[in-house]
Design a protein around this nucleic acid. Structure first.
Length: 944
DNA sequence: CGGATCACG
DNA sequence: GACGTACGTGATCCGA
């Protein structure tokens, strides 16, 4: 019986355009741009690796566009007429795509005057007729027409960037119709990229609705006559011919002449020699190493290879620069040692002292570093030179005998001098976690490095090919080392079946844990040497690195909450919501789930017939606050009740219930976890629980703040930067009036109103405040119009006036955008970079989104830098002032919260104020003062 | 697991 | 030509 054949057809031309935009501008050793080629090569690599898999290819061909002309141009001269020329650094990569394909010894089809889509369609159908399965490697929506099954032979698609299979369900999800109707939908929508007209004013939603309702294009167009009068009806009738032409243009030609028979596409593995040569030529060193490892040929031992030391080829691994990677052996988990005796541990410690740098990782029973038990730690001193030291394995529900291991206190006592030694750098990935675990055992690890934080300092906002832009170890290992780490899930399982790490057998545990340390060591070597090249040393060394132990300390302090008060609030909220729920149901005349926006929308806008319902992307009515407030103004009392219900259930579930649960049983306090890499701008973020969004804006919300309290005899002190972002904007954009106003301690929004309108009253001040924020967030006339409740034209006038009064602002925005477009990143006053890979996107919404974020990032980021510097200096300054009992508890972006003995308030306040006010110095001298507001009280609420 | 909603700066 | 409209976050709930 013949095995099932499976043909993969790779849409090469479409791929490289996407790869080009998603990858950094790498160059090969000769200076030729190769970013897209690199992406293409890794994609072919992945496909080739699937060769042996059940759903993998037996046959494969790459289809390229030879020219963009085809029979469609004969029918419609405007077809693809307005396509811009490809970017100039993509042009030289086209021929290299062919080279790459040949390097993999794969067939490559290019026919003059035939579009790749038609060739793909032809081959796909030909294979399907022979009973083969077909996978089209593309995400082109035109090709989705082909998806489906004929006589057991199926055609599907694979989007390698999203690693997603596209089959009938996915197509239906995207277009709302089955694959064979996609052409009809597209004919209505049109396609600006290919210049297919469609029907003016008809977008994807309308198009798919029309086709779904009427069955096909002709039926939909015929039905127009019978529709009730509307813009849509007019358009369908008027532009019928456009839609019909579009339908013809969108029909794939499935009967092209086949330049090569299908059988020629059989895959017989990839001969390594031509591929190696290609990878070498273009400096794809990380792939080259994987090739060497994969073939395992005896003349290339899988070890440090001095013969390769003369390889000067720049490594175009996707780092955004051409930093050569040191030649390391591939990760080999079989080399790791499981350390089970004190003698062996002492040996490792001795070697670590000699190495002066050790990568370090703790393994624990829980993700919460304030609750977990330490079950082991791992060390790495070089590539494949790593060990795992189990301390508490097999003590859980396991029936096996407890394995031999060093007693925890003995091992910790042995390693404490190493971890605390000034002479040895301790490197971790998210080392803040390990700092906290060990601090609970009386070990204060220093000095430290953190690969996650180093990565963030260089690459915040950068995205790479299909891997994402994160700073987690697995991602960093993939991106920089081309290595796939063992996944925690695979070791411990997931969900209910998950086991704690302490119950993982020692051989598996050693592979996983020591690999973490090994990979951390490698990442450190790689990332740390990139720091100066990326201009990121200053921000890392002066701001982010010194902050790590400070934030760890804050997390360990935690904050006391009044459980009884929260519990009372929970009860009160439960009673009130129950009452309101009944009232809402009564008013609606039926019981439904108020918390379901879908059900609520149907009740309000369908059943009760209220107007003003707007459906969003998902086809659901929006029922958010602004919508409900409008309904309320129309006299819908149910809207007010829903608003109140929403508010109270939010407060209950997110705060009064959750905070009680978050109280640590050992410390009786709530310990948040701050992410040092959470926000692209450099801000911290807070999780588990988030203590940066505790309510303050409403009276009832502030009840929750009252539950944040000091220990007996202490008070809480809240110190916040007043209007720091506007102050920074005034400085950075050099706006004399605003600087003066800040200097004089004026009300800044009032001053803006005076400048804008000549007079200050409630109304003009409120407008000015809105405009000031609009500026900070990157302005659009439509956005501002919405906020001010005026027409976009009027909003534009307001913006014009603002720019005229404050030309520095306009200049700042212009300069910032120019720089970001040219360099790809923005910078804070302290040199923190945030990358904006979509700033030059052809997609307008995407591009404009990036522009707004880019305008805001230097301001928000500088503010973050400043408060971080203040935090780092704070406790030493207080200790210096003889105030060692002041504890720093929280950071909320522009606010620091302290707990201190009542008697210390008077002495501590000026110290805190001074540290915060002078935090930019000496690196940056601001032309505006930083105003600090300080309050104290018996609760966080009272401290404001 | 993504979308909708809403809490904060 | 259509899109969707203020920046940055995280938690919760619903419903597929």
């Amino acid at each position: 019986m013949a095995e099932k054949q499976h043909l993969y057809l790779v849409d090469g031309s479409a791929y490289i355009f996407r790869a080009y935009h998603r990858l950094p501008p790498l160059t090969n050793p000769e200076g030729t741009p190769v970013g897209a080629v690199y992406g293409y090569t890794t994609m072919l690599w992945k496909l080739a690796e699937d060769l042996d898999k059940a759903e993998g290819p037996t046959h494969l061909a790459v289809i390229l566009d030879k020219s963009s002309r085809s029979f469609r141009n004969e029918i419609y001269s405007e077809y693809k007429a307005h396509r811009p020329d490809p970017p100039e650094d993509l042009v030289p990569q086209f021929p290299l795509i062919r080279d790459a394909t040949r390097a993999f010894s794969l067939p490559c089809i290019e026919e003059p005057d035939v579009e790749a889509d038609d060739m793909i369609a032809t081959y796909a159908r030909a294979a399907q007729r022979q009973g083969w399965d077909v996978t089209i490697v593309s995400s082109d929506k035109d090709l989705m027409q082909l998806v489906g099954e004929v006589d057991g032979a199926r055609i599907d698609m694979l989007d390698t960037m999203k690693n997603a299979r596209i089959y009938i369900d996915e197509v239906e999800e995207k277009f709302g119709v089955p694959p064979e109707k996609v052409g009809d939908v597209l004919a209505l929508m049109g396609d600006s990229v290919d210049n297919i007209p469609g029907i003016f004013g008809v977008g994807p939603k309308t198009a798919s609705k029309l086709i779904a309702e009427h069955g096909d294009l002709t039926a939909a167009l015929d039905a127009a006559e019978g529709m009730k009068k509307s813009k849509l009806k007019e358009r369908l009738i008027e532009h019928r011919a456009d839609a019909e032409l579009s339908r013809v243009l969108l029909t794939l030609k499935e009967d092209c002449a086949l330049p090569q028979p299908l059988e020629d596409f059989r895959l017989d593995g990839v001969p390594p020699e031509p591929l190696a040569k290609f990878l070498e030529t273009h400096g794809f060193a990380s792939l080259l190493r994987r090739l060497d490892a994969g073939t395992g040929s005896p003349d290339k031992p899988n070890d440090l290879n001095p013969a390769k030391a003369d390889n000067k080829g720049a490594d175009a691994s996707p780092d955004g620069n051409s930093q050569p990677l040191p030649e390391w052996p591939d990760v080999d988990r079989s080399t790791y040692e499981c350390v089970q005796t004190l003698e062996r541990l002492e040996h490792w410690i001795e070697r670590a002292f000699a190495a002066r740098l050790v990568a370090f990782d703790t393994e624990t029973s829980d993700l919460d570093c304030m609750l977990c038990d330490l079950v082991g730690f791992s060390l790495a001193l070089g590539p494949n030179d790593a060990c795992y030291v189990p301390l508490a394995h097999g003590t859980g529900d396991m029936f096996d005998e407890k394995p031999e291991q060093i007693a925890r206190e003995t091992a910790l006592a042995a390693i404490k001098p190493l971890l605390e030694s000034d002479a040895v750098l301790k490197v971790g990935q998210n080392i803040k976690y390990d700092l906290n675990v060990l601090a609970r055992h009386g070990i204060h690890v220093a000095p430290i490095h953190d690969t996650m934080v180093i990565s963030f300092a260089m690459d915040a906002g950068r995205e790479e090919s299909g891997i994402g832009g994160g700073h987690g170890m697995d991602e960093l290992a993939e991106r920089h080392l081309g290595h796939t780490c063992l996944k925690f899930k695979d070791i411990c399982g997931t969900g209910k079946k998950a086991i704690p790490f302490g119950q993982v057998p020692l051989d598996k545990a050693t592979e996983y844990a020591a690999e973490d340390a090994d990979v951390t060591w490698r990442l450190y070597q790689h990332l740390h040497r990139r720091l100066p090249l990326e201009g990121a040393t200053r921000i890392y060394e002066r701001v982010d690195r010194p902050l790590i132990p400070v934030v760890a300390g804050i997390e360990r302090e935690g904050i006391k909450v009044d459980r009884a008060a929260l519990s009372r609030l929970s009860e009160q909220f439960a009673e009130t919501t129950a009452r309101i729920e009944k009232e809402i149901h009564a008013e609606a005349g039926e019981e439904f789930t108020i918390g379901s926006p879908k059900q609520l929308g149907d009740v309000l806008f369908e059943k009760m017939g209220y107007k003003g319902g707007k459906k969003g992307k998902s086809g659901q009515y929006s029922t958010d606050q602004s919508v409900l407030e409008k309904l309320s103004q129309q006299g819908a009392t149910i809207a007010d009740k829903v608003l109140e219900y929403r508010q109270l259930s939010k407060l209950k579930s997110t705060y009064t219930d959750a905070l009680q649960q978050a109280i640590n049983p050992n410390t009786s306090r709530v310990h948040t976890s701050y992410s040092l890499v959470g926000a692209q701008t450099g801000r911290l973020s807070s999780t588990d629980p988030n203590l940066q969004n505790i309510p303050i804006r409403t009276e009832i919300g502030r009840e929750i703040r009252k539950a944040f309290v000091p220990d007996d005899g202490n008070v809480l002190l809240a110190a916040d930067y007043s209007q720091i972002e506007l102050r920074l904007a005034a400085h950075m954009a050099d706006v004399p009036q605003l600087k003066e106003a800040f200097e004089a301690g004026e009300d800044i929004h009032a001053r803006t109103a005076k400048e804008m309108y000549g007079e200050v009253d409630r109304d003009t001040r409120a407008k000015a405040k809105t405009i000031n924020f609009a500026i900070l967030y990157g302005i659009s006339r439509w956005g501002l119009a919405g906020r001010l409740g005026v027409e976009p034209d009027e909003a534009q006038e307001v913006i014009d006036t603002y720019f005229k009064r404050f030309p520095g602002i306009q200049n700042y925005i212009h300069q910032t955008l120019e720089t970001v477009r040219a360099k790809g990143y923005s910078e804070t006053l302290f040199g923190r970079k945030t990358w904006f890979p979509r700033i030059n996107s052809k997609n307008q919404a995407e591009r404009q989104g990036s522009e707004r974020a880019a305008i805001n990032a230097p301001i928000q980021g500088t503010s973050a830098d400043i408060i971080k510097r203040a935090m780092t200096r704070m406790l030493p300054a207080l200790a210096e002032a003889g105030l060692p009992d002041v504890r720093m508890l929280l950071q909320v972006h522009d606010e620091l919260v302290f707990e201190l003995p009542e008697g210390d308030v008077e002495a501590a306040s000026p110290v805190i104020e001074k540290v915060m006010a002078e935090a930019a110095l000496p690196a940056v001298e601001l032309s505006v003062p930083l105003g600090i507001e300080i309050g104290t009280g018996a609760s966080w609420d009272a401290a404001h």
